[in-house]
Design a protein around this nucleic acid. Structure first.
Length: 423
RNA sequence: GGAGAGAUGCUCGAGUGGUUGAAGAGGCACGCCUGGAAAGUGUGUAUAUCUGUCAAAGGGUAUCGCGGGUUCGAAUCCCGCUCUCUCCGCCA
């Protein structure tokens, strides 16, 4: 949710940002400004009336003490009239505030100046790439075949236990999974992140806070008996830790990392996009979250990008980093970098991480604030990213490192995996 | 699941209708004291919103778990809800 101030201060900036984000309902901007003005007028009227009632109440108290009943009764009548009016105003004011809020919530975050103009993923900007592209000759099996060959994962079994999109890992597949989680967490902890283990279900307030609700309700699994939602990413519980909190200077930047399973309903599509591990309903991910002083957030973002890049380099995977264009960015983000790794057998790039600065968009919704140098409260900036999502990393590790002797495990992972090969 | 107790500011904790945004203590911040520190001492220390202003100071309003009611006036009385704690039962 955008802070109301920027509408009063710089309407043009808002309109330009919305245009870049390919947002059409720009008439909302004028409506918001108009509603905000109405709200302030009402507020003034209400406050003045309430002030006069408060003053009169004091006087009545004093008159009663003096025993001047007559005068007191007269004032009571007057107060009663004002109170009726106040009641009306409170109702109207409540409605106006609701309306303002509902409109504000519909507007996406404004993109950062460096965000490229564009509408489709093709218009994303490749910032840089790294790693060496694999040269596969004889062995060129996609990961779903390799999984079956080495008995690492069983999708049909998951289908039996739960439904499609719930893979069962076993043997060295399960072990690889655990090794990656452990490795990623340790990597993040070494960089100064504090490890958390949050709940995997959240309540409505939390889902709302990070922006999954109200719009994306259908993307989450909903436990209706208790009103809980299965988390689509640990960003949700991690960021909500700070909901309604005013942080002291010493408490920021807050750096958190957590492993969690992620649950996503998303409407299924067909074909190679969803085969194997490319898209599943439950997968594992290690997430990083930072809560920072607004003045530093873009430096922090670059730091997080460099961090994830190092992680990918250590896995010896070919990768590229994209700066998403306005039309491809998420609703809540101001600037997003996507990380993709090259899948040698499928011969395409797969997204494995998305690192974003949300500026104060989430913080405003969740009322996450800190005290600035003058001791005033100010909204923080929130950032998060994956480091990393497991399924596609596994897919690439298997496909890119396959050979006649089996699948080679990258050196960094071997201590965690307990071996250098899957065969 | 059964029974009971409670929810007040950064924390503890007082407060049963009238300058109570809220005593007191602790914590924290700043100052004094000191060679430096401790101790001592003084001052300050909620949030939102409106108004005001270049900015501020200042002022108004709302907020003592949440929502409603009674009253001229509610932290204080009444109703509903939520949550927490204790004991018993069950249980990884």
């Amino acid at each position: 949710m955008l802070p109301i101030n920027i509408f009063r201060q710089n309407k043009e900036l808002v309109l330009q940002g919305l245009a870049k984000k390919n947002f059409k309902e720009t008439e909302l901007v004028d409506k918001i400004i108009e509603t905000d003005e109405r709200r302030r007028l009402m507020q003034v009227e209400h406050d003045n009336l309430a002030a006069s009632v408060n003053a009169a109440s004091k006087q009545i108290g004093q008159l009663m003490a003096k025993g001047d009943k007559e005068q007191a009764e007269q004032m009571k009548l007057q107060v009663a009239q004002h109170k009726e009016k106040i009641k009306e105003l409170v109702t109207t004011l409540g409605n106006i505030e609701q309306e303002l809020h509902d409109d504000l919530v519909r507007l996406p975050n404004l993109p950062h100046a460096s965000v490229p103009v564009g509408k489709t993923p093709e218009e994303n900007e490749v910032v840089r790439s790294g790693g060496t592209m694999p040269q596969l000759s004889t062995h060129k099996a996609p990961h779903w075949d390799l999984m079956e060959q080495y008995k690492l994962m069983d999708l049909a079994l998951g289908n039996k236990l739960t439904g499609s999109g719930f893979p069962v890992f076993m043997g060295k597949g399960a072990r690889l999974q655990r090794a990656l989680i452990q490795y990623f967490l340790n990597f993040n902890i070494a960089a100064g992140y504090t490890e958390y283990c949050p709940p995997f279900m959240v309540n409505e307030d939390s889902a709302y806070g990070t922006g999954q609700l109200p719009d994306k309700e259908g993307q989450m699994y909903h436990v209706t008996a208790d009103g809980f939602y299965l988390i689509p990413t640990s960003e949700v519980p991690l960021t909500n830790i700070f909901r309604d909190v005013i942080l002291q200077e010493s408490e920021i930047p807050a750096r958190l990392t957590a492993y969690s399973p992620c649950f996503r309903r998303e409407a299924g599509s067909y074909g190679k996009d969803v085969r194997g591990l490319n898209r599943v309903h439950q997968f594992d991910k290690v997430e990083i979250v930072q809560i920072v002083d607004p003045a530093t957030s873009y430096d922090v973002l670059e730091g997080m990008v460099a961090h994830v890049e190092k992680l990918l380099q250590s896995l010896e995977l070919p990768y590229r980093i994209l700066r998403l264009c306005g039309g491809d960015m998420s609703f809540t983000s101001a600037l997003t970098y996507d990380f993709e790794v090259y899948s040698a057998a499928q011969e395409r790039w797969l997204e494995v991480s998305s690192v974003s600065n949300f500026e104060s968009f989430q913080a405003n919704r969740m009322k996450i604030r800190h005290r600035d140098a003058n001791g005033k409260t100010q909204l923080v900036h929130t950032l998060n990213g994956s480091s990393l999502a497991l399924p596609r990393i596994i897919a690439c590790l298997l496909e890119n490192n396959q050979g006649p002797e089996g699948i080679t495990i990258p050196a960094a992972l071997q201590p965690y995996f307990g071996g250098d090969k899957i065969n």
